[in-house]
């Protein structure tokens, strides 16, 4: 399996809005913690090392 780079989220605006809303009232520290947990949860859901490493490479500045 390769990293999915085609749109895969049925309601993109919904998803994006939910993500931003969740963090609206959080402090900088809380945001960081939430993001870290989110990465860990989603990474475990994906599971495949190859896909995860590919995503990390793509995200790298």
């Amino acid at each position: 399996m390769r990293l999915q780079l085609q749109s895969n989220i049925t309601k993109p605006d919904n998803f994006y809005n939910h993500l931003i809303d969740m963090q609206r009232d959080l402090s900088e520290e809380e945001v960081q913690m939430m993001n870290a947990k989110l990465i860990l949860l989603l990474s475990n859901h994906i599971g495949e090392e190859e896909v995860l490493f590919e995503a990390m490479d793509l995200a790298k500045p």
């Binding site: 960081q32 913690m33 870290a36 947990k37 990465i39 860990l40 949860l41 475990n44």
Partner: peptide, 18 residues
């Protein structure tokens, strides 16, 4: 940031096996 990830793992580990 590695401290944040570390603490996130420890917090999640309490409830979630993964």
């Amino acid at each position: 940031s590695s401290r944040v990830f570390r603490d996130a793992v420890l917090q999640l580990a309490e409830k979630h096996e993964f």
